[in-house]
Design a protein around this nucleic acid. Structure first.
Ligand SMILES: [Mn+2]
Ligand SMILES: [Mn+2]
Ligand SMILES: [Mn+2]
Ligand SMILES: [Mn+2]
Lengths: 150, 150
DNA sequence: ACCAAAATGTAGCACAGGCTACAAATTGGA
DNA sequence: TCCAATTTGTAGCCTGTGCTACATTTTGGT
């Protein structure tokens, strides 16, 4: 045995810098997770019923309507949405683009989970949180994996 | 075609209640994610160097030491850790148990990601966020999947 | 033994995202 | 038409998690 390792079952800790960078990335993903869920949901509501009312958004997210309105205000601040009083919420081009990316990613994550044997209902629940932490590299790997086992 | 569906590529939206429950679960997972990362890290530091100083914890997490100290205070409030000034942080039995569960889950997620083709470095980064949203059902599926392809 | 550097702790700020309570506008049914 | 129910918006509170600045304690090298 060439390398001197204390315990094969216990991998060495990463360097401080590397570990800090991983945590920082997870924190940043978490900070955009909510916006992603909102635009995906708004896009779905627009597609399925032609409008996305703050009250509907709130009900679907399971939060108070005041909470939804505040977050929608943040979407507007960040250039992802617009809204007209009593006419609902709409997505900007940037918002639409984000919604499309997020929806694809969401589906791919659900498919991958089911492909490795996760029950459908668990897959749906877990994907809602997991999706926000899946990198493009992982997404690409998921696609390849799913393609190869048709 | 028996069912009348508008678009096969666009699955119907879940019911309001089901969707709200999913989002609620994701929110709750997110609220414990930070605690999980702290106890796992503290456990690693204790195992590898015998002590876990707030400054080390902060450096590894990439946050200011004041931030780490505050979160450690929350760990203590929640019965996961204790600390003696200038002697570092220690885990309670509950904290140790949580750390062990979290470490196993973290490794399993990394292994699963690599097994489906995600590059090792991406797997490590993504797992840091994903792990907190993986249900027991999914974990069991991951284990089975990994076992079956030895 | 002492003092400077490092570590630790505290205080106070900002912002996000929950909540409830209340106010105002709109809508639709009688 | 008009009023009550619904929807929307606002205000103010709390908690969590970042930050910086400053104070205190401990430690270690001379
Ligand atoms: Mn989601
Ligand atoms: Mn989603
Ligand atoms: Mn993590
Ligand atoms: Mn982890």
């Amino acid at each position: 045995m060439a390398t001197k390792s204390k315990d094969l079952a216990t991998p060495a800790m990463p360097t401080e810098a590397a570990q800090a960078q991983r945590f920082e990335k997870a924190r940043s993903a978490q900070s955009t997770a909510l916006l992603e869920d909102y635009v995906e949901l708004i896009s779905d509501l627009l597609a399925s019923s032609g409008e996305a009312r703050p009250t509907d958004v709130a009900r679907r997210l399971g939060v108070a309507h005041a909470t939804a309105i505040k977050t929608i205000a943040r979407l507007k601040r960040e250039g992802l949405a617009t809204s007209r009083p009593y006419r609902g919420v709409f997505l900007t081009e940037a918002g639409k683009a984000l919604a499309d990316r997020v929806r694809l990613r969401h589906r791919l994550v659900v498919d991958l989970l089911m492909a490795v044997g996760v029950p459908a209902d668990s897959a749906e629940v877990d994907a809602e949180g997991i999706e926000h932490h899946v990198s493009d590299a992982a997404l690409a790997a998921f696609r390849d994996f799913l393609a190869q086992r048709g």
